[in-house]
Nucleic acid binder design. Structure first.
Ligand SMILES: [Mn+2]
Ligand SMILES: [Mn+2]
Ligand SMILES: [Mn+2]
Ligand SMILES: [Mn+2]
Lengths: 216, 216
DNA sequence: CATCCGTTTTAGTCATACCGAAATCCTAGC
DNA sequence: GCTAGGATTTCGGTATGACTAAAACGGATG
């Protein structure tokens, strides 16, 4: 019933994250791939999550969070991102070093401690990677964004977020002083001009991790 | 081999804690009692811990930590107490509210984060309850202490630590402004006179939780 | 030397999270 | 419409961890 192991939370988070920037519902096979487990493992967990009223699932169809599931998922995401923000803001971590620690702590920190951290940080709205921190009620403020790899030459905009999946990418961009808020113009695939006129060559891996303001 | 689940850490911690102030080795039945599990459960865990080289155990005899086991145990205690100190010092917790949170986090926080917390706190030597924080190498500085219930009338001394087992006791003492460092003279079982001349009536439960400097 | 208490053995339970192989479903393309 | 092939589920397991009651055992004590 009140089934909330760390594994279940990770499934919920992954289901939620898939829709967060990609838009469409996730399929069991995509979920298996993302989590690095066999499809049959997904089927099993899906059964438990559906029984607990956290997702809906028509057999052979894609997965969708229920309201309860979305609330639980955003709660985990909220923890993850607040913890990351805290590690960078107060504990001396770099933005490429926070993910693993947050991945563990998001399952064990109490609500009370989380809110204490939140208050200390001054109720931040975004984590170090530019990801919005869901509110306690599950609300998320997320502006339209598109990948730098989908941008056209000449397009200008602002970096909104960097996927924190690949630490090497984060280090590359940190060295280039590129992060959320950076204003740019794409001058070639993938070279960008910064506001101060400097030019930066971006690796393909990095470009595929950078989400920017949607073009007009 | 490198067997370190949360449960195993709790067994090690409990074995260690028993010797910390009581002195003698713990027996399986005492351990079972303290942990709230059946004796057969202890036997099983003891087998695993012994196989992993963390404790020594002659059948039907008491339990003793090996050097490796003691190091692991003090490491967990160190985490527990640093976390408690941090919760009180920076996160607005009262000293009767930190135990449960520390009980969970002590198993999931990383060494790196622990050391960052330690540094922020200025490398404290004692937790909010007056318990010494073991060093990273397992060293513990612990002055001789005895229970207030064992003190004789007229005896003077300083409160060294309060057992954090019972939150109600902690709240009682906080209301009386009694804590580690409080100087006192025992005027009756259990009334103490404080340095400013004020007198305090101490409940039996509280007196049995207060450790004071050993009499000369 | 018998008794009895603490300890261990035995034989299980229960929960969680996996997996591969086989069966089944669904649909896109013919 | 039919069918092949890919996705999904079912089925039968494995593995681990933590726990238990009941029975057998051992050893110190009276
Ligand atoms: Mn992250
Ligand atoms: Mn992040
Ligand atoms: Mn404690
Ligand atoms: Mn303490």
């Amino acid at each position: 019933m009140t089934y909330t192991t760390g594994a279940a939370e990770d499934y919920l988070k992954t289901i939620y994250s898939h829709t967060e920037w990609q838009g469409d519902l996730i399929t069991p096979s995509a979920l298996a791939l993302r989590l690095g487990v066999a499809p049959s493992s997904v089927t099993e967990m899906v059964k438990k999550l559906a029984t607990s009223g956290l997702i809906t699932h028509v057999p052979y169809g894609p997965l969708a969070l229920t309201d309860a599931g979305r609330l639980r998922a955003t709660a985990v995401v909220r923890r993850h991102r607040l913890i990351e923000t805290w590690l960078v803001g107060e504990m001396g971590y770099d933005w490429d070093q926070v993910h693993d620690e947050a991945e563990v702590l998001e399952h064990s920190i109490s609500d009370r401690l989380l809110e204490a951290i939140n208050a200390r940080l001054g109720f931040p709205t975004h984590d170090p990677h530019g990801d919005p921190i869901p509110a306690a009620d599950g609300t998320v403020l997320r502006p339209p964004a598109s990948l730098l790899t989908d941008a056209t030459v000449g397009q200008s905009g602002t970096v909104l977020r960097i996927s924190d999946r690949d630490p090497a990418v984060l280090r590359e961009l940190a060295a280039d002083l590129i992060g959320p808020g950076t204003e740019f113009t794409l001058t070639a695939p993938f070279t960008i001009a910064l506001a101060d006129g400097q030019s930066r060559l971006i690796s393909v891996a990095a470009a595929a991790s950078i989400w920017v303001t949607a073009p007009d």
